[in-house]
């Protein structure tokens, strides 16, 4: 058992292992939204946590209140100075996050099996992980910051490339019947996931 004592946070990896099954689609949307919310706030405050290139489900933390944060990898922290400079770009973090979320949806499936995802969620992951088939006009680049003059409404209607945490959040919000409900709704989904997992954890600890 990796987990001991009462906890305020569970990693996505803990959750997958405890249930021994994949997360559901609603949880995937919620973790994406909440995690990108955290990351965009971190960036806005100008105090980015150092983030190595390859993230894992162990670094995604779900908190009791439904917040989702991204923890830096422990071992690399000793290398302080160097890591600050080698931290990932926003698109790289989004790509890693998309891959982690896909793997959480795919958890426990055999190599020759594939889960049928709803088209909007598959599209979100495709965009996040940057695996969308190029259709000619797709010139995204890691360092390219062509933000500038984008029409807000147009962007909301169809996002063909994700460049920021805010883009991910917009897509997650657009998935809901009422977009303005997104923060409350997704927080509640994550809070429930945490609570249910803790319940299961407590139960399993007792019978052990």
């Amino acid at each position: 058992g990796e987990a001991e004592g009462p906890r305020d946070a569970l990693s996505l990896e803990d959750i997958l292992r405890l249930y021994n099954q994949p997360i559901n689609e609603e949880q995937a949307w919620a973790v994406c939204f909440q995690c990108c919310g955290f990351l965009s706030t971190e960036d806005a405050r100008g105090r980015r946590a150092p983030r190595p290139r390859a993230l894992s489900a162990a670094q995604i933390r779900l908190w009791r209140d439904g917040a989702v944060t991204l923890a830096p990898t422990g071992e690399s922290l000793h290398d302080a100075g160097k890591l600050e400079y080698s931290r990932s770009t926003e698109t790289e973090v989004i790509e890693s996050l998309g891959i982690i979320i896909y793997k959480a949806l795919d958890y426990g499936l055999k190599e020759n099996e594939e889960r049928e995802l709803s088209p909007p969620l598959e599209k979100l992951i495709d965009l996040m992980a940057n695996t969308v088939e190029a259709d000619g006009s797709n010139d995204e680049g890691y360092e390219a910051a062509n933000e500038g003059m984008e029409d807000e409404d147009d962007e909301k209607r169809k996002i063909s490339a994700i460049r920021s945490y805010r883009d991910v959040m917009k897509l997650c919000a657009a998935h809901l019947p009422t977009e303005s409900e997104a923060p409350n709704h997704y927080q509640a989904v994550c809070r429930a996931l945490f609570a249910e997992t803790m319940e299961l954890y407590t139960f399993l600890t007792k019978i052990k």
Partner: peptide
């Protein structure tokens, strides 16, 4: 409280699983 059910299909070469695998 149960998790929603999901359908499993055979892995497709052009599917998202294959594309994600290539990234990792």
């Amino acid at each position: 409280k149960g998790k929603s059910l999901y359908k499993i299909k055979p892995r497709h070469d052009s599917g998202i699983k294959a594309k994600i695998s290539m990234k990792t």
